[in-house]
Structures are given as C-alpha cells and as structure tokens.
Simulated assay, not measured.
Amino acid sequence: MQFNIYNLKLTMSRSDLGEKEMLRRIGVLVVDDSPTKRGIICSMINSQPDMGVVGEAVSGEDAMRKCWGVNPDVITMDIKMPGIDGLEATKRIMTERPTPILIVSSTAKVQVKFTLEAIKLGALDFVGVVSDLEKMKEDLLKKIRIASKVKVVRYIEPKKSLERTKIFKSKASPYKVIAVGVSTGGPAALLSSLSKIPQDFPATIIIVQHIVEGFSRGLAEWLDSQCSIKVKEAEDRDFLSPGLALIAPAGNNLLVSSTQTIKLKSIPPDALYKPSIDEMMTSCARVYGPLAVGIILTGMGQDGVEGIKAIKKAGGLTLAQDKDSSAIFGMPKLAIESGYIDKVVALESLPSEIMSLF
C-alpha cells in the first residue's frame, strides 16, 4: 500500500483534529476547469472526517504543478480542459509521479471513450457525473477511500504489436465457458487479458465488472476496439458462442439459462454489488458444471467467493489474480482464503494460462 504524509495546514488547522486523525486523512487534489463542478466535488470530499481537499487545479498544466507541490494521496481528474487535457495530464503524472487517479466524467458516449483511454494510461477508476448528487457522492467517496490504499505503478508506453489473426490451435478441452469477476482496477486488467486472446477462441467469456450505469456499453465497445476477440455488452437471450466475450450491463444481473443463453434480471436497490459476480458464476456452475472456469480478478469486497465455491463444487476450474499484480487484493484474497481456488496467477500470465486449457 502507498500512503503519502503531508502537512494538512493546507486545508485545516491542528485545532480542528488531533494529530493522529490528521495523519489518517486522505489528501485529494481536485482537477476540473468548471468552478461549479469543482466546487461540488470539493464539498463532497470536505464533508468527510477521513479526507480533505489539499489542492485544486483548473487545467492539466496546473494539475501537474499541484501534484508535485501538495503531494496528494488521490487525484480526481476531469477529461476535457483547455491546454493540456486530462488524458495527457494522466499520462504524464503516471509516468513521472504515479498517483492514484479517479476520472470524473459524464456518461456521454464520447466521454466514456476518453475515460477508458485514461484508464489505459494508468488511471485507476472512474466516477460518473449524474444528476443524483447523493448517488454520485457515495460512489466518489467510496472510490477515493479505495484509491488511497492502491499500489500504483508507473505508466510505460506499450510496444506496438502486429495485428493478430486467427491463430488458435485447439486441443480437446473440457471447458465451454470462462466466468470472470472483477471490480476496482478492472478495465485495465480486462484489457491486459482480453487483448491477448485470439478471435477464434473456442469458448465464451462472461464478464461481470462492478460498474456504474452508463459505462458498461462504452467499456464493451472500447475493449472490442482493442481486442481480437469479439466483445459486446450482453443482451437478454444472447447465445453463448465461441469467440465471444460478454460484459454484464450495468443495472442488471447476468445469469446463464439452461438453454445456454443470457438472462438479465434487475438488481435489487439495496444490493451491495452491482452487478453480482456470485449470481453469474453460480448460474454458470449450475448450467455448465465441470465445463466452467471461474476467475476472480482485482477488486474490493467479497463478491465472487460464493460463485467460485459453486464452480469448484460443480467440478470446474478456479483461478485468482495474485497480490503483486492486483490493484486491490481484496476479492482475490478472500477467494483464495476460501480454499476453493485451484491456482493463483499473475495478471500478465493469465492469457497464456487460459490458452493452455484449450
């Protein structure tokens, strides 16, 4: 875990809190060129006893200067700004001074695309700007707390690879479906894994990514543009076919029916995890039994533990991401501790591990 200690006189006096409480506060740099939006975000953060705004920036250039000056634990980043925009600022910060970055963006299609490009450049996660400010506040504060505990890594420009073709040489394999559960740090982990899977992969990949409404279709389209395998947002009655990766739509739990098609059902308002990894994996275990593979990737919480257990008890294979390559070693850790994981795998080794099964 990475923590930065700074002088909180930037935002408060020592008479406001005891020294131990001050040192525990999460320092946030808020970057947005809109005074109104910036004010709303700052107000949300400053309303909490365990965090506070240590600086505000109105452009990418300003963000980079402030990042070095105030030494924040977490940065909230707008995308569209004058001069250096949020994408370039994210890239430079993650290259020169890695710091957990949360993109705060609208759910408009073009903004979702830019947000996911920022994830590719090293941003950790995103927060949707929605009309329900209480809902936005809950999401923002939760993700700031998670981000403050993340092990960040320096962004390295990837080498350009040759376009992939149909190169899969399948052996006789017992597996028909790969069920993947992921949360915080998911988009980058999914890109890292799916981009190395060929388009003629002989099984269906089903993915549940904890995500806010408005982003799941953009995530699927972004991954599809970066990968050889076909990636799409799942729809009701979609057939599970080889060479297809399906992303559960935000706002719906995804189940596999006995006819090997997708069944979507609404998520209860009080559900803790949205969508549910457990429900998806349990349905895969029920329909496919020993023909299913369950994989738990980076994320916070215990969603997926019951699903992994169901797949393992049905005779399937189970994998979990290792600690060193996880942005948040929460879900994988609990899955491993359950005793139902067959193998722990580093993210960079996951594609070859999957391919070796076929």
Results as ranks from 00 to 15, higher is better:
residue 270 D to L: 11
residue 202 P to R: 05
residue 161 S to D: 13
residue 46 N to L: 00
residue 80 K to M: 12
residue 262 I to M: 01
residue 222 W to L: 00
residue 6 Y to K: 15
residue 214 G to S: 09
residue 344 V to H: 03
residue 180 V to G: 04
residue 68 W to D: 13
residue 130 V to L: 08
residue 181 G to A: 03
residue 327 A to S: 14
residue 267 I to Q: 07
residue 345 V to K: 09
residue 66 K to L: 14
residue 88 E to P: 12
residue 17 L to Y: 15
residue 33 D to T: 06
residue 77 M to V: 03
residue 285 A to Q: 03
residue 102 L to I: 04
residue 72 P to C: 01
residue 163 E to Q: 11
residue 103 I to C: 02
residue 321 Q to R: 13
residue 30 V to F: 05
residue 279 E to R: 03
residue 116 L to N: 00
residue 306 E to Y: 10
residue 130 V to R: 15
residue 296 I to H: 03
residue 70 V to C: 11
residue 10 L to W: 11
residue 290 P to F: 02
residue 282 T to V: 12
residue 73 D to I: 06
residue 41 I to H: 06
residue 244 L to M: 14
residue 270 D to S: 13
residue 35 P to E: 00
residue 233 E to A: 00
residue 204 T to V: 09
residue 209 Q to G: 05
residue 155 Y to N: 03
residue 63 A to R: 08
residue 183 S to A: 01
residue 39 G to Y: 04
residue 168 F to Y: 12
residue 169 K to C: 09
residue 138 E to V: 10
residue 291 L to F: 11
residue 154 R to F: 08
residue 145 R to I: 10
residue 287 V to N: 02
residue 279 E to W: 08
residue 303 D to R: 01
residue 53 V to L: 12
residue 43 S to F: 09
residue 279 E to K: 13
residue 236 D to N: 15
residue 18 G to F: 07
residue 331 M to F: 09
residue 120 K to A: 12
residue 158 P to F: 09
residue 286 R to F: 08
residue 291 L to P: 08
residue 251 G to R: 05
residue 185 G to W: 01
residue 322 D to V: 02
residue 172 A to Y: 11
residue 36 T to Q: 15
residue 205 I to W: 07
residue 63 A to E: 01
residue 64 M to E: 14
residue 175 Y to W: 11
residue 281 M to R: 00
residue 32 D to E: 14
residue 66 K to V: 13
residue 105 S to F: 09
